[in-house]
Amino acid sequence: MAAGGDHGSPDSYRSPLASRYASPEMCFVFSDRYKFRTWRQLWLWLAEAEQTLGLPITDEQIQEMKSNLENIDFKMAAEEEKRLRHDVMAHVHTFGHCCPKAAGIIHLGATSCYVGDNTDLIILRNALDLLLPKLARVISRLADFAKERASLPTLGFTHFQPAQLTTVGKRCCLWIQDLCMDLQNLKRVRDDLRFRGVKGTTGTQASFLQLFEGDDHKVEQLDKMVTEKAGFKRAFIITGQTYTRKVDIEVLSVLASLGASVHKICTDIRLLANLKEMEEPFEKQQIGSSAMPYKRNPMRSERCCSLARHLMTLVMDPLQTASVQWFERTLDDSANRRICLAEAFLTADTILNTLQNISEGLVVYPKVIERRIRQELPFMATENIIMAMVKAGGSRQDCHEKIRVLSQQAASVVKQEGGDNDLIERIQVDAYFSPIHSQLDHLLDPSSFTGRASQQVQRFLEEEVYPLLKPYESVMKVKAELCL
């Protein structure tokens, strides 16, 4: 049975990233139509530049190519590739079939990587351009969430054990800070992308030097003109047959890092959902379990974690691919890159769409948070109580021993009897502590235990987050809708 299948058929496997999760716009960027249309555009740009620099290419040939950029006979191309065992030459023939007058000058002087690699770089750039505003929107939604809850005390956790208090907004800023680093890295790697350009079979530009009869300047002009037509500021000066596969490492490393950030955020949300302090959106008709109707599973956060793990592992592909590119190139890269580049971007696209949807509907339960604080705060307040007693004339050592005994009794009630923490009640009825009984409410005010959390939130948002989001103001209103 021949390899390949009808990918629109229910009898043929289709990647869930495309069929179930990723956005239509990201799927289109990695589609065959987008790819092969870009090949034709690159052939047109090459012909236009070659004509401008004096090669015998007519206006009629150029116009014929322009008129057929979208006229792609995919069936013919597939048949040609089956016959020739070469995808680029299959599309040269297919393009030439609908451009008979231009057929002889299509791909003039070029090698397969002229269309293959340059198209990949265009796709990487455009895919990054799709991700950047999506990530900015996630940051914006979380920034709104953090600002609104900047002063809401909550129990902090280290080692997932109760620690000092923080605020809900401050905790959210930990998430935002990681995503801001990801946004900066995505922008950097996007701006650092260079075009492969017009380089020939081993990167020496020998074929173009021959076409222009040894004119170095025209060869350099050709490279520059096509690079500018493709919208790049610069091209690699040095290439082998391909652009260095280190570029793929750079791009997928940034995406993998984004995956790590999203995994951490969504894990926190899942843990908070278990504590009943916070939940992701839950639709009115949504079913959490087929057997347990009360369940409210954090399905979206779980999906993000599941896909983020996949995204983090994909960076190993370009690392290994770059390491086995012998001399000017081997074909070890080809099949692998067809999979890992598309999957990385479709996965990143999915987790950003999902995280935006989550961040637009996060639900906080202040009463649950308050109750958990009441359970733990008495123990945390013991040092403040000791200091207040010393100020009232008591002995630190005597007070410490009193607190120690009462704390152990209260802990026994919590752990052995399943009761509430009654340390404060014990202190309130103990005559030894009568000098500070009137101060206990103040000493137990949760806001006095959150330090500068709310001020940190305000400063972080104003100095770091809002300036970073400013270039994306025009796209901030787009909502994230999930079908599944």
Rank of each mutant, 00 (worst) to 15 (best):
A235E: 11
H159L: 01
A90Q: 01
S151D: 10
P56W: 05
G54W: 03
M181W: 08
A291H: 03
K199E: 01
A77I: 15
I176G: 03
S12C: 14
L482N: 05
F208M: 10
L121P: 03
L352H: 04
E279F: 03
V363F: 08
V390Y: 07
L469G: 03
Q210Y: 05
D32G: 11
V363W: 03
N185P: 06
T239A: 14
Q408T: 12
D59T: 11
D11M: 12
H217K: 14
L174G: 15
D59V: 09
F160T: 01
T154M: 10
R452C: 13
M316S: 12
K477M: 11
F195P: 04
D144S: 15
G169S: 01
G54K: 09
R137C: 15
L255K: 03
I72T: 09
K402S: 03
V457C: 12
I72R: 01
G240A: 10
V168E: 02
R296G: 02
K218S: 11
R338D: 02
I386N: 06
C172Y: 11
P10A: 14
L443S: 08
M299C: 07
D11Q: 08
P10M: 15
L377W: 02
A230C: 08
P293C: 02
D178S: 05
N336S: 14
K402Q: 07
E64N: 13
G96R: 00
L142K: 08
G109Y: 02
Q177E: 12
C180M: 13
T313E: 02
A335T: 10
R141A: 15
L355R: 05
H91F: 05
M299H: 14
M292W: 03
G169A: 01
D420H: 02
F232V: 02
R190Y: 07
L155Q: 01
R83V: 10
A77G: 14
P378S: 06
I139T: 11
I358T: 15
K35G: 03
A256M: 08
T167A: 03
G4P: 10
L311W: 03
V29G: 03
E360V: 00
V315Y: 09
G200V: 02
R309G: 03
Q320L: 10
R141I: 15
V475T: 12
T201Q: 04
K284P: 09
A77M: 15
E283K: 13
V262K: 04
K402L: 08
I369A: 14
R83N: 13
H86G: 03
K284C: 13
D216I: 06
V138L: 13
K264G: 06
K66G: 11
R296Q: 11
P24E: 10
L152N: 09
Q408H: 11
A143D: 02
L272N: 01
A388M: 05
R188N: 07
L132Q: 13
S257K: 05
D332I: 03
L331F: 09
T154L: 07
G361W: 07
L183W: 07
A335D: 00
L346T: 11
A230E: 03
K229Q: 03
Q375L: 05
R459P: 07
A163R: 00
W326A: 06
L55G: 02
E383K: 00
L311Q: 08
L482H: 05
Q455L: 10
A410I: 05
D317W: 07
A2D: 08
T313F: 08
L331Q: 06
A410P: 06
K134I: 08
R371S: 02
E481Y: 12
Q285L: 14
E277R: 06
Q458S: 13
I238K: 04
N274M: 12
A342V: 15
R196G: 08
K224R: 11
C180A: 09
Q205C: 12
Y21K: 02
Y466F: 12
Y21W: 15
L55R: 10
F345T: 12
L186Y: 03
S323R: 04
F95N: 07
L174F: 15
S447I: 13
T94Q: 10
S301Y: 03
S290R: 02
G156W: 01
W175R: 01
S407T: 06
F433D: 02
P318V: 06
E302L: 07
A410R: 07
E360K: 04
S359T: 10
V115G: 01
L174I: 13
T38V: 13
D11A: 06
L275I: 10
A103R: 14
Q286N: 06
F345E: 04
V457Y: 00
Q409F: 08
A344T: 05
G54F: 07
E343V: 06
E228T: 12
R190L: 10
L484Y: 14
V414T: 04
V219N: 08
K35I: 10
V364C: 09
S434Q: 10
D248T: 04
L121N: 08
E464D: 11
E250L: 10
G451R: 03
F232W: 05
Q41Y: 14
R270F: 01
Y13Q: 09
Q51N: 06
S140R: 14
V414C: 03
S412G: 11
D6H: 00
K276M: 05
E25D: 13
P446N: 05
H159Q: 03
A47S: 08
L311V: 08
I176N: 05
C304M: 14
A392D: 07
F236R: 07
K147Q: 13
N71Y: 11
I265T: 13
L17W: 15
Q356W: 10
L461P: 02
M65C: 08
H310F: 07
L252P: 06
G361H: 12
V478Y: 13
S447L: 14
S412Y: 15
W39D: 00
L131Q: 11
C180T: 10
E283T: 13
T267P: 06
A49H: 01
E376R: 01
S112L: 01
L468H: 06
S151A: 12
Q205K: 01
S12L: 10
L331E: 02
V324T: 14
R329A: 04
L69E: 08
S323V: 05
L124M: 09
H91R: 02
H217R: 12
G214K: 09
L131K: 06
L443P: 02
